[in-house]
Design a protein around this nucleic acid. Sequence first.
DNA 1: TCCTCGATGTATCGAACTGATACATCGGGT
DNA 2: ACCCGATGTATCAGTTCGATACATCGAGGA
Lengths: 192, 192
Amino acid sequence: MLELAVLGLLNESPMHGYELNKRLKGVLGPFRAISYGTLYPCLNALQTAGFITSDTDASETGAGRRKKTTYKLTAEGKERLQEQLAEGGPSAWEDESFGVRFAFFAQTDAETRLRILEGRRSRLEERQENATSSMSSARGRIDRYTLELQRHGLESVEREVRWLNELIATERAGVAVRPARTRRTATPQTAK
Amino acid sequence: MLELAVLGLLNESPMHGYELNKRLKGVLGPFRAISYGTLYPCLNALQTAGFITSDTDASETGAGRRKKTTYKLTAEGKERLQEQLAEGGPSAWEDESFGVRFAFFAQTDAETRLRILEGRRSRLEERQENATSSMSSARGRIDRYTLELQRHGLESVEREVRWLNELIATERAGVAVRPARTRRTATPQTAK
DNA sequence: TCCTCGATGTATCGAACTGATACATCGGGT
DNA sequence: ACCCGATGTATCAGTTCGATACATCGAGGA
């Protein structure tokens, strides 16, 4: 999951671990930052696996040695990224994964985009059902704070479902113009 | 964090690990369930620490032995819970912790409630600022999906801030009527 | 001029938590 | 008579967090 995010970001441009972490904030959640305790080990693993290479930048002036490491995708890494983006299995619509998958929708084909959006929506609808049934069964037995928390949570889910509905409608409109399963990798009408 | 949730639930009534896990769903998130891989070790640790005791229920009819363990708070456990509830430090307004703390507001004194709500609010406002500044600085350099994700995330945060504002106003009204540290648990005028 | 401060940058460790899996028993419906 | 879904307890490898520790850079004020 973090692996996907790292590959996706490095595909846009090579960068340092530090910058990677900052960009990750915008991509994950969008406000959730990853800790370095996860990022650096992950970068090492990706490097060992041959998906990225590091270009250590021992700055020229012998005296002041500032350690900087620029990471960049290898050909294998790009391949790996494509595989992961195309996959779109059930894990793609869990809370944390979904944000990452969505952030890289521009590099994902239209079919997979739609599958993920719909998977996410049904995941949320499932939660709605659980929540409403458990709330009505516990009617009166819970204090007002717990109730208020559940109410707010439920409203958040409903809001996300509405958001997804709009996105799905937009996607379908795009697909209608250029019907599914096109060979062209870059679907023309995406970024405005 | 999980420890607090367990103590809080067991304070309401003794129960099995399984039921504890189900109740946790309503309290954490409110849709996030804890895994048993966390719950059972936690219960063991709490027991070792002397905060809870287990009452194994080897059902009478010698033949069919169904293993059931009912957990319940000890006096030390109740004390521990009170300490934790009163604490309300900065960790109390992080995403996951906040939900749990809020769920047990009925057992928390008015002063702490207010402190936590305001802490949470300023935490969110901080995020808003980061987000808006990073969004405007990256103007145009990001694709429409990433942008849409950030927009939606920002809206979620704004929505939670409004929610907190209402809650804070309600709390203050309650405090004004019956100044801090009241014995009465239920504050009259709440959700509209 | 020096000096502190905040941003940049790399790195590690223990603790917390997840997701999968395993096993067993109970009650109800077919 | 049998199966299935809910109840119930338990473990383990792997992932991620949060805190902490370094060190360097540029800018601003004393």
